[in-house]
Design a protein around this nucleic acid. Sequence first.
DNA 1: AATTAACATACAGGCTGCATGCATGCAACA
DNA 2: TGTTGCATGCATGCAGCCTGTATGTTAATT
Lengths: 197, 197
Amino acid sequence: MQQETGRRSNRDRTEATRADLIAAARKLFTEKSYAETGTAEIVAAAGVTRGALYHHFADKQALFAAVVEQEAAAVAREIDRAAPPSLSARDAMIAGSDAYLTAMRTPGRTRLLLLDGPAVLGRAAMDAIDNRHGNRSLREGLVASMRTQSMKRLPPEALTALLGSAFDRAALAIEAGASAEDYRAVLMALIDGLSRA
Amino acid sequence: MQQETGRRSNRDRTEATRADLIAAARKLFTEKSYAETGTAEIVAAAGVTRGALYHHFADKQALFAAVVEQEAAAVAREIDRAAPPSLSARDAMIAGSDAYLTAMRTPGRTRLLLLDGPAVLGRAAMDAIDNRHGNRSLREGLVASMRTQSMKRLPPEALTALLGSAFDRAALAIEAGASAEDYRAVLMALIDGLSRA
DNA sequence: AATTAACATACAGGCTGCATGCATGCAACA
DNA sequence: TGTTGCATGCATGCAGCCTGTATGTTAATT
């Protein structure tokens, strides 16, 4: 028989420690900011030492990247769940839009994905993350709409980036207390304006 | 007769020192980033000591705010110059759009105004700066267009913020090497889509 | 049994903000 | 107009924090 506490496989230990660190970091990075959060606080909240942090992550920035990646994946999952392929192109766009705005109301997400993310990791790294998770569904929806001739033909890359940034900005404004209806109305007007009437 | 070097009025000294500090900070904050630039480098480049910096600015962040404010004002001036009130609402919008994209090609501006600015000063503070300088002309142009019935009626606040963020994103993409024509085409399509055809 | 992984601890360097000290401009008054 | 007292502009030194790394130790893996 083996003791309860010790005697875990190395893989389990690694997985658990990494998860604890990411969870503690997410909490602190969102309560304050990346710059205002020290590694000492993070490891204290996670119940480990700074040695463990620097064993699993190259530096504080790499830990932050892991937090951002996880958060982007979570947002993308919520969107995919709300806008399944069974919907029409137009319905999927609307459902996905609302799902995105709802997902971004989860506290801390705007700071992680829209403020600190680009500044700490750089716009290029954030683009890579976005293309792996967030913007992917938006881009597919736009391409589908253009294919069915229901939307003007435009460069998909640019269209995705610009509409995506408008959604991001709406999420920020709504979190800051602006009228969600107003911003939703403008977003829909922008999308409708692209349709071939 | 008074010596060349010394014997300056206090006001002149203050003005000169502040300008030197802001110029040196601008250069370093854009070559690297806010976080990677130390106050020691800044004062060395400005030819003063850290004491002078902390005499004129509350902290490093306040110096950064001064740099950002100056840069936002410069961008706004370039736009106002390119889109005078003599132009029609639609022409002013197009001229102003191009002027903005051109202005943002000045090296370092995207980093100051779009990446580090929001992260370091916060979105609320950046909104305040934007409304004093950048977004003002855009908002006026949009309201004018709506008044002449040439554009759909939409909440001006939200419309300005969302179109503005699309412009910001276009500036970032173009600087990163994307096709300026593609992004310009999408921006114009978004604006055209809002017109009452 | 030997090696490697997963940590803990201690240390070095850098960086920010403040407190103190000094010199110069300035203003009021004789 | 000269001088006397105060405020302003700035330099220097110090204290505290924070990151990243090097070293040591225990437990798992082979």
